[in-house]
C-alpha cells in the first residue's frame, strides 16, 4: 500500500530501555505541594501551569528510584538523557531545540537540587522541570511565529465536499478494526506519530497541548496568545487532517486518486 509506506519514514526502530511517560508524568511537585512551591519560586515558574500540566493518573510503576545522597548530573544524562530528549522531541519536533531544552532543564535541576527530596523518582522530577521548559518555549514561540498555517487544509479538503455536503465516495469511512482494538499495536503509534509530523508545526502544537497534554482551551489561548476562535479553527483543522491521515494510512481503505497530498501538507 503506497500511501502507507510513504508515511513510515521513521526508519530504525532499535529498542531502547523502557521509559514510559506514566513515570515521567509523576513528578515530585505533584505529590508534594511544598516541593512544587519551592521549585516554582526558585525558577520563576508559573505555579498554575506546573499543576495543570500534570496529567492525571500518576502511577509510579515504571519510575526508577534513585538514592538522593548527592547530586550527580553525569548519571542524569546516562540514566534519563534519552528519555528526556525523546519527551522533548515529541513535543517540539526539532532535535536541536529538544537538546537545548533538555540542557536548560538539567541546568535548572542542578540549581534546584537542594529542593529535591527524593520523595519521587529522579526521572519524574527532572521531567517535571523539562515540562516547564517546554511550556516556556511554546510561550516564547507565541511571539515569534505567524499564523500562515491557518491557510492549511482549506483547499486540500475541498474535493471531499460537493455543495458543502460530503462527496458520497470520499466521506468518512467506517474505521475497521475498531480504534479501541489498535491501541496496543506498536505500528499504529508509528502511523499516528507520522501523521502528527505531517501537520504544520503550529497546528500540531495546538493539537498536542489540547489533546495530548490535555490543557484547557483557555490556558492554551493564554500561553500561545491566540484568540479562542483561532484556537478552534486550528483544532478543527488538526482533527480533520489527523482523521484523514489515520483513515488513509491505518484503517483499511482503498487508496484513492488524489489521496497523496504530502506536498501540500509540508
Amino acid at each position: 500500500m503506497q500511501s502507507r509506506t510513504a508515511l513510515f519514514r521513521i526508519g530504525n526502530t532499535s529498542h531502547i530501555a523502557s521509559c514510559t511517560n506514566r513515570g515521567l508524568d509523576n513528578f515530585a511537585g505533584a505529590e508534594h505541594p511544598e516541593n512544587l512551591a519551592e521549585i516554582s519560586s526558585l525558577e520563576g515558574f508559573n505555579l498554575a501551569t506546573l499543576i495543570e500540566m500534570k496529567l492525571p493518573d500518576s502511577g509510579a510503576a515504571n519510575t526508577v528510584r534513585e538514592p538522593s545522597c548527592c547530586v550527580n548530573p553525569d548519571s542524569w544524562v546516562d540514566l534519563h538523557g534519552d528519555c528526556l530528549y525523546r519527551y522533548a522531541l515529541l513535543r517540539v519536533r526539532h532535535p536541536e531545540v529538544a537538546e537545548d531544552l533538555v540542557q536548560e532543564a538539567l541546568f535548572a535541576a542542578v540549581r534546584t537540587y537542594a529542593n529535591f527530596r527524593g520523595t519521587s523518582s529522579e526521572r519524574s522530577w527532572l521531567c517535571g522541570i523539562l515540562k516547564n521548559k517546554i511550556c516556556d518555549y511554546f510561550r516564547r514561540l507565541a511571539h515569534e511565529v505567524s499564523f500562515t498555517d491557518l491557510e492549511f487544509l482549506e483547499d486540500e479538503m475541498s474535493h471531499k465536499f460537493i455543495d458543502q455536503g460530503w462527496n458520497h465516495d470520499l466521506g468518512p469511512a467506517q474505521w475497521k478494526p475498531d480504534p479501541e482494538a489498535v491501541l496496543d499495536r506498536k505500528e499504529f503509534w508509528e502511523t499516528f506519530r507520522s501523521c502528527l509530523d505531517k501537520l504544520p508545526q503550529r497546528v500540531a502544537d495546538v493539537f498536542m497541548l489540547r489533546e495530548i497534554e490535555q490543557m484547557e482551551t483557555a490556558q492554551i489561548c493564554e500561553a500561545l496568545k491566540i484568540s479562542q476562535n483561532n484556537l478552534w479553527v486550528m483544532l478543527h483543522r488538526a482533527r480533520m487532517a489527523l482523521r484523514e491521515c489515520l483513515e488513509l494510512n491505518w484503517f483499511e481503505r482503498k487508496p484513492r486518486v488524489n489521496a497523496e497530498t504530502d506536498e501540500h501538507r509540508r
Binding site: H15, I16, C19, G81, L90, V102, I212
Partner: peptide
C-alpha cells in the same frame, strides 16, 4: 487515541540523544 499517546511514546519514538 491522543490521550493514550504519552503512554506509548516508546513505541513510536526510537530517537536517542
Amino acid at each position: 487515541i491522543a490521550s493514550s499517546f504519552p503512554e506509548r511514546v516508546d513505541d513510536c519514538c526510537p530517537e536517542t540523544l
